[in-house]
Nucleic acid binder design. Structure first.
Lengths: 155, 155
DNA sequence: GTAGTTCCTGAGTTTGTTTGTCAAGTTTAT
DNA sequence: ATAAACTTGACAAACAAACTCAGGAACTAC
């Protein structure tokens, strides 16, 4: 039950954007440098976020990605769903490959309840968190913002 | 974030044992038939449970696996840890491959908090459930027990 | 038209799942 | 006692899926 890197990297990257960039387009290159994530891989993750309506993009110089909504409108739950794709939070409603019926027939699926309740637990928790929440936490922790980073290297 | 089949199959199998077999040794073959799980794979999972002190085994005819403790002493949490091995519940305390320090340096790990809290949530939930709990649930659902199943095929 | 980006497709590597083979131990029947 | 049948135990090969990364095409600003 490992959390995929898509979620971990993805959330870290989005937090980074909300915390450091605000609304401005920022390049994958920048984020990957700050967060130490493979740029190419991060691009893929961002594609998912784009399809999910979390990010928008702009090509060309001065281009990059930027948040499609306000930070408080982007929940961690939405990020998870976009990143993991299958939207299976904990994974099993006992229908892995159409074996769902069999589970019902057997009736032996108390475990299904367990996974369902666990998934709900996570769902509720993740739904209560959004990028704004995370930014506030970051500020509470005293995390440094790397603002105007673009210009630092041009002088 | 998919729950590995080791956990799903494993818990289902253990529940099956507690519910149907009681203390008697039961064969992998039987469980895999009832639960529709690949027998060889289930054996591997049971080896983990054996090492974790959840199951014991007996070879030869009339042999099989049986619970090493009473059902109420086997928590779902313990099953998860035994099945998943790495004991990583949600996976990331940000030290995937010794990159932990880097996360601290960056200080950009608000996400670490999030995963930690989510993991704790699951840990608490799973620790509150055990095989006896599940059996009671099964009974409440009116699941049929397949008792004396051995003899049914010998007449 | 040139440089800086995102976007699309694919390939290599790892991990998870399944199946196969044979050895070791136990019970039962002869 | 001895053989036969049954069951776990250990190892490894085959198969599938997912993770990770790379190359080049498409687009946009200047």
């Amino acid at each position: 039950m490992r959390l995929s890197t898509k979620s971990r990297y993805g959330l870290r990257a989005l937090f980074d954007m909300a915390y450091n960039a605000g609304n401005l387009p920022i390049q994958v290159k920048e984020i990957s440098r700050r967060q130490n994530i493979s740029p190419r891989y991060l691009e893929q993750i961002f594609q998912r976020f784009k399809k999910a309506g979390i990010l928008k993009s702009k090509k060309g110089p001065q281009g990059g990605y930027f948040l499609a909504k306000r930070p408080e409108e982007i929940t961690v739950q939405a990020v998870m769903e976009a990143a993991e794709g299958d939207t299976l939070l904990v994974a099993c409603t006992c229908d892995n490959t159409g074996e769902g019926e069999l589970c019902e027939l057997d009736g032996n699926c108390v475990t299904q309840q367990v996974w369902k309740e666990a998934a709900d637990l996570l769902h509720d928790y993740f739904s209560g968190l959004n990028l704004k929440t995370l930014c506030e936490r970051g500020q509470a922790l005293g995390l440094k913002r790397e603002s105007n980073h673009k210009f630092m290297y041009y002088i």
